[in-house]
Write a protein that binds this DNA or RNA. Structure first.
Lengths: 353, 353
DNA sequence: CGCGCATCTGACAACGTTGTCCAGGCTCTA
DNA sequence: TAGAGCCTGGACAACGTTGTCAGATGCGCG
């Protein structure tokens, strides 16, 4: 009866004064090796001042007991945890995978572990996560903001938690920020369509309260204005980017009295849905998407995109974070990484209809 | 001169007896609120036995000082960290994103944080990571094995670290394992090609030391044998799955004296490269891939795949892990999740040539 | 042979929290 | 009004580690 066994175990633990799990500690190792506690600590941490013979005895005891240093206690004593937190929107989003991996690589190079969590685009959850990470005393925090007010982090930053915001700027506090050039990228993408003869160009983007979405919209407007093209309200869709809504938005702007001949898609999710809708259209419609997508080159036509370098965003942010920890950084800075227009066909289609 | 500043800071810290960063502790809060240490603890943890008035005073002190409980110390005292570790191969791989997210969701539902790291398919790095996580005293470990010997985890498991292996089985130890039906999936996929008239079918897969790769190869062989088709050596490529090598393998099996009329691709990365190669061929070649890929339905033809449910793998593993922690689990088990054949066109092409 | 010095070792406090336990003050009842 | 019992608050130890410091041991040299 396993349940009985287990309960008995717990009872035994209670009796012996140790907890369930009952791991050996340095004290146990010391006792077994017949040395002092501190000597074990020295061996475990490779500190000098231990004779080879003693070291061997200690090592044997460690192996025999299966001892592993408790880093929680170590952290408590030393003050640094050698771990950093990453708060992002959704780990399952293909945009954040490479970003996350890049942060991890930099952390690894600095001997730190990475704790990450998804905010699911919910400001409250972002805050909850970030503060939970602070309570764990991560040395630093890389945040992809969901909310637009980060004053809740002020005490933490003051207390020494290195903090860098990525992809979107921090709200209402002064902090390091690493962004893509969303405005410039969108403007270039839309200008590209205009250069290929389009004038009726649709824009489907996320809610403008999301900074990247607002910036890309701004880029769209700027490109249109530069070309002297007045924008009609029905050409723009600014809201949630779930497939149903995006599909309806695309179909609407393709069917009105002044249907668009080209669409600029505000992010990778939008692009994918728009591709599906366009595949169903009888006449060709040009498309430029923000964010690169896998296999974009294999579709017919290939999908022209404004690509941002997710890995570079992550790497830059993480490196900056560790430079904060070094103390080699002074004032918060705003770093903007360039985007790249990749032409593959869909953005070079001429206006039809 | 930052270095000078810093040294001065350290000196000041030394003097005041606190460390760099100098966070308020419960003691500080207690002093400011004019109450005892334990009373603060009670307020912070919502324990009963504090009058509203006292609670208010404490809360004010907490807010004024920007106090946040140090979970490291808490962990040390309580023995559980409310965090679990996930060791996977590559966070940037689109297959692991959803898996990781699923694990995170389950962890979140249990009030736990997720620490994850990439092994980069290196057994040594896997071990290093897993043991680092154990040193942090994670409550449990979800491991996507890179190596085939996990005896190094035995002391940890004995010490109470809940452990579940995903995607590939544990090596040389008895532990919970959650897998996809790699053998059955591959067999079905290859049988599908055979049912559509193919006899010369190529297989491009990863190194057979990787369990999933070996199982899928076994499925391929079984399907061929069931159909009474002898397999020629040049139809199989078993090695690294970098684009260069896969491309060469595909081109080789398409050009020999007995060229294949269909290819079974052993994983998502292989599938993508094979699609590129096939797009360059003059005659149509059938393709079935293991793992679903985004936009597979939009290609010409759509890509037929054997899909596994990455999120379900992660969810199942994490749930099992927390059941281990509950104590409601007894013996290690091997759970196999079914795969699903999704027909989209490429796998239904008839043999050509 | 004794002294000083270098090397090695261990006792002890501290990190910030929580569990245990006891003291004091209050209310309520007889 | 006295006593019982409850409620609130606080002192103290413990969690497992590391830094400090002092003691012990052994060695070389005068």
């Amino acid at each position: 009866m396993p349940e009985t066994t287990r309960r008995a175990d717990r009872h035994a633990d209670r009796l012996s004064g140790t907890r369930y799990g009952n791991r050996p500690t340095m004290k146990d190792v010391a006792a077994r090796a017949g040395v002092g506690l501190k000597t074990v600590s020295r061996v475990v941490n490779g500190e000098p001042g231990v004779t080879p013979d003693t070291e061997r005895r200690v090592q044997e005891a460690i192996d025999a007991l299966g001892f592993r240093r408790n880093d929680s206690a170590r952290v408590l004593r030393k003050g640094r945890t050698a771990s950093i937190g990453l708060v992002l929107e959704d780990l399952a989003d293909p945009f954040y995978g490479p970003l996350s991996r890049a942060v991890e690589e930099v952390a690894r190079a600095h001997g730190a572990l990475l704790i990450n969590g998804s905010s699911a685009e919910d400001p409250e959850r972002e805050q909850e996560l970030a503060l939970a990470l602070c309570a764990r005393r991560v040395d630093g925090l890389v945040v992809i903001p969901a909310g637009d007010d980060h004053r809740y982090l002020e005490p933490e930053i003051r207390a020494g938690v290195a903090t860098v915001f990525v992809d979107r700027p921090a709200g209402k506090i002064d902090a390091d920020v690493v962004l893509s050039d969303n405005y410039g990228g969108a403007r270039d993408g839309v200008s590209h369509l205009i250069a290929h003869g389009h004038r009726r160009i649709g824009f489907i983007g996320d809610m403008p309260r999301i900074h990247t979405a607002a910036e890309r919209l701004r880029g769209y407007r700027a490109a249109m204005e530069d070309a002297g093209i007045p924008v009609e309200g029905q050409w723009m869709s600014l809201g949630a980017t779930d497939p149903v809504r995006v599909r309806r938005a695309a179909e609407d702007m393709l069917s009105g009295p002044t249907p668009v001949t080209a669409i600029f898609a505000g992010n990778n999710r939008v692009t994918v849905t728009v591709i599906r809708v366009l595949a169903e259209q009888s006449r060709p419609v040009a498309l430029v998407g923000f964010d690169d997508i896998e296999l974009a080159d294999l579709l017919q036509p290939g999908v022209t995109v404004v690509a941002q370098d997710a890995a570079a965003l992550g790497r830059t942010a993480a490196e900056r974070l560790f430079r904060q920890l070094d103390g080699s950084l002074v004032a918060p800075e705003r770093i903007e990484l360039p985007t790249r227009l990749i032409t593959r066909g869909s953005g070079e289609l001429p206006p039809a209809g």
